[in-house]
Every structure is written in C-alpha cells, then in structure tokens.
C-alpha cells in the first residue's frame, strides 16, 4: 500500500540528487509497527519538517536515520550511500548529527564537556574555535561553561543540545522537537537559531509538534499520521491547507 506522495517540488539544489532519501521506511517495536512505509527527501540547504501528533512516528523516523533503531525494511540513503545498516556512531561520522527529543544533555557533566562530547569524533584542531562559536551563538552557555549542564533551564538545555549537535560540523542536522516545553520567548530564540543555521548552509530535518512555527520556516513539510505520510508540500502551502489548519493549528 503506497501513499500518493507527490515528488518534492523544485527548491534550492533540486537539480542534484537529494542529500537524504528515505524510501518506504518501516520500523517496528516488537509486534507494533510505528513507521509504516514512509518516503521523503531532504535537499541540500533546505529546512524540511515532519509534523504530526504524539505517536505519529516522527521520533522513530529520526532515531532510525541516526542508527539508534533498525529499520524492518526500506532504505535510508545519505549523499548517495545507504546508511540504514550502519551503527549509530558511524552515521555521525558520515555527517548527520541529532539533537534528540527531550534534549538528553549529559546533566552531570559541565556545559563545556557536553560540547566537547559533541566533537568526540573530530580529530582536527578547530574544536576550540567551534566551542567559542557556540558560546557566541548562545552567550548564556559561555557564561556558565564550567557549571553542570543539569543546572540549566529547559530552554538553555535545548541550546546546549543544539550546540552540542553542531560541534560535529554536521552537513545534516536532525532536530527532534526543539521547542518542546519551552516558553514562547525561548521558542522564538530556538527557531531564530534554526534560521541562522540554515543561512550558514546547514541542512536541517526538523521534527515538531508546533506545526505553525515549523511550517513557517520550512522549505518542505510532511505531515505524518500513525506512521504514514498523509500530506506533503512546501511549508507555506501546508500552512494554508485547510486540513492541516484543522488538525494541527487548532482551528475549527
């Protein structure tokens, strides 16, 4: 059973092959199939968002791309190479980093140590400069660099999780619900950071429940319901879609 998913419309870099191709991906937890054959593309330089409610399969999809979960079938292709059988630590080395759902910072380590862990796989000597860059982007992290990360507020922890993911200099950044549980002010800060990252050339796959914010900055959006993509299109277009407005933007 295949969903009638339209091919992604022309966008930045659409003339080349997509950076990330997910093809008919299925993922199960025991007998329960959480992702039921989804297909989508992420083109270089784009922000692509997956939106949908709780339990739709968004996080499962990201964790499978990152190699933390194994696909039951289907393919994940990154820069022309299949990566769905690789262990997680090698996928990071390919150039995909993830800021996970719930931030998952290392609470008992200092902010600086968290950032150093983000650069764990790097051997070059640019790490120090990149840590300084994160401190510039999020001054609060710089001010508190020697404190335990667990003492940060939720929003600050999200900044740290994103900064940590950027420390590996990923070409594709996966962001899983970066706005979860944040105040509106903090949420704006996080989304403006996502825009800033895109402007520096990082490709972003963003999973969100906050459909309004995600779609308004996404080049391409996919709506997931119970493990399947039910709708796709440019972010602005989905934002105006009546079904999306009813289901995800709280309109009657």
């Amino acid at each position: 059973m295949s969903d009638p998913v339209a091919a992604p419309p022309p966008a930045a870099g659409a003339d080349e092959q997509p950076m990330l191709q997910v093809r008919d991906l299925r993922v199960s937890y025991g007998a329960i199939e959480a992702v039921k054959g989804i297909t989508f593309d992420v083109h270089r330089g784009q922000v692509v968002t997956l939106i949908g409610g709780n339990g739709a399969g968004k996080t499962t999809t990201l964790r499978t791309i990152s190699g933390l979960l194994r696909a039951a079938s289907g393919q994940v292709i990154f820069e022309g190479e299949r990566i769905d059988r690789r262990p997680g630590h090698l996928i990071l080395r390919k150039g995909i980093a993830q800021s996970p759902e719930g931030r998952r910072i290392f609470a008992q380590m200092t902010i600086r140590e968290n950032l150093e862990l983000g650069a764990f796989s790097r051997k070059d000597d640019g790490v120090e400069a990149d840590i300084d860059h994160v401190y510039e982007l999020f001054p609060v992290l710089g001010e508190r660099r020697t404190q335990k990360a667990g003492t940060l507020s939720g929003g600050e922890q999200q900044m740290l999780a994103m900064g940590r993911a950027m420390m590996s200099r990923p070409r594709l950044l996966l962001l899983d619900e970066p706005s979860m549980g944040l105040s509106p002010i903090m949420m704006r800060k996080i989304f403006s950071t996502v825009r800033e990252l895109r402007s520096t050339g990082t490709t972003i796959l963003l999973v969100e429940q906050n459909a309004q914010a995600a779609l308004s900055l996404a080049d391409q959006g996919y709506v997931i319901e119970t493990g399947k993509i039910v709708l796709s299109g440019p972010g602005r277009q989905l934002l105006d879609d009546e079904g999306v407005r009813k289901a995800y933007l709280g309109e009657d």
Binding site: G88, F106, F120, R164
Partner: peptide, 18 residues
C-alpha cells in the same frame, strides 16, 4: 569522557559518535 557519557545515557552517547 566517553565512558562517563555512556554511563549516563548510552543512546545519546552513540549520537555523539561514541
């Protein structure tokens, strides 16, 4: 540092390339 990270949260440690 990787050992401590793994002790705290192995999944996230793997996301760091550990």
């Amino acid at each position: 540092r990787a050992m401590r990270a793994t002790a705290q949260d192995p999944d996230t440690a793997a996301l760091m390339g550990i």
